[in-house]
């Protein structure tokens, strides 16, 4: 049961939105005021539950979300120093994501909405990644060229203004994070693959092997499954090459493709700012490269901290607040849409 000892005077001000995120393997809840000020952001990762399977198991994720949801929500309120009665609205990610997982967050948010008679807002997970940029950089001025790269998505989005998006490129097969997971598993580096490869690569030579740069120079779409195959074939043929060199060279190829296409998309759209989002944005190599590319092209790089790049509920609460004011609440009859797309202009 939730209790909050915070005195009324110490309670956060503004329109408080409780955000809930359960689209994949993080159970998260956050309290954000006026779409800007994060009062709490709790993320309970299920990585350990999925590690032995080498990837997220939807049924295990859904069960874990249900078991964790009450505690994570309670912690978010306690840390923010507020109570359900202080909430202005409640937002949940309603897609894209795993069907059973999404339904836990959506059901929880609607239960709060019904019990408190406050608006419910269903939030698009991809839009939330885009809006996360404003959470600690309120002065960000569009147009922005944003790369969202995670285990589930790889896309370049031009943000024309807050709420107006254009998807200019996306993966035609595996997501970037998926490629990291598969290659890490093949190299015996464990799960999740992104951090594992990032760590091993520091002691490797990124120029040891010249892996292909798939779809380089062909617009802004990505393809990673061929790159994974190239790594497998190379290692079979050259078992003597150290794993650290393979990992570093593979990472170099991915970072090269992601950063080059992001810059090219920014040039095409006239965007002066490069932004990263999604779990792969925590990769140190990618961050350094995007920073360098921005500097050399007279642009700005905005790289949110890993806590805002990876899945979190603060971005859901912030986007919920924004959408509540632009479009109004979502009806309680709204469901979850596993294949939800980013709302785009044009």
């Amino acid at each position: 049961m939730v209790t909050s000892q915070a005195p009324t005077a110490g309670r956060p001000r503004g329109e408080l939105v409780l955000g809930i995120e359960t689209s994949c393997d993080e159970t998260a809840a956050a309290v954000v005021a006026d779409g800007r000020e994060i009062h709490s952001s709790i993320v309970s990762s299920q990585v350990d539950l999925h590690a032995r399977f080498g990837g997220v198991v939807p049924e295990i994720a859904s069960r874990a979300h249900l078991e964790l949801i009450n505690v994570v929500v309670a912690e978010a309120l306690v840390e923010a120093g507020c109570d359900f009665a202080d909430l202005h609205a409640v937002a949940a990610c309603h897609g894209p994501g795993l069907a059973g997982a999404l339904l836990v967050g959506v059901s929880a948010a609607k239960a709060v909405a019904v019990c408190r008679s406050i608006p419910y807002v269903g939030v698009n997970h991809l839009e939330a990644h885009l809006q996360a940029a404003w959470l600690d950089e309120p002065d960000l001025t569009p147009p922005l060229a944003v790369l969202i790269a995670s285990g589930g998505h790889t896309m370049i989005v031009i943000v024309e203004s807050r709420g107006r998006y254009r998807v200019v490129g996306q993966t035609v097969d595996d997501a970037a994070g998926e490629a990291f997971d598969k290659v890490a598993r093949f190299l015996g580096l464990g799960y999740p693959g992104g951090p594992a490869i990032d760590a091993v690569a520091t002691s490797g030579d990124p120029r040891a092997v010249r892996f292909p740069r798939p779809m380089a120079g062909e617009g802004f779409d990505f393809s990673f499954s061929g790159l994974k195959t190239a790594v497998v074939q190379y290692v079979r043929k050259h078992p003597e090459v150290p794993v650290a060199d393979i990992a570093a060279s593979f990472q170099e190829a991915v970072v090269d493709v992601l950063s080059t296409k992001l810059l090219a998309a920014a040039e095409a759209a006239g965007a002066r700012t490069l932004v990263l989002g999604g779990g792969v944005a925590a990769n140190r190599n990618l961050r350094a490269r995007v920073d360098a590319l921005a500097a050399s092209s007279g642009r700005r790089a905005y790289l949110p901290g890993p806590a805002l790049c990876t899945d979190n509920a603060a971005m859901i609460a912030a986007t919920g607040w924004f959408r509540l004011h632009s479009d109004g609440p979502t009806p309680l009859s709204g469901g979850a849409t596993p294949g939800l797309r980013l709302p785009v202009v044009g």
Binding site: L103, A111, V114, C115
Partner: peptide, 18 residues
């Protein structure tokens, strides 16, 4: 499973809020 999760989550969170 899907139906159960909707009902049980809703009941659990309603009990928590109320």
């Amino acid at each position: 499973f899907t139906g159960l999760r909707v009902g049980v989550t809703t009941a659990r969170v309603m009990a928590q809020v109320l």
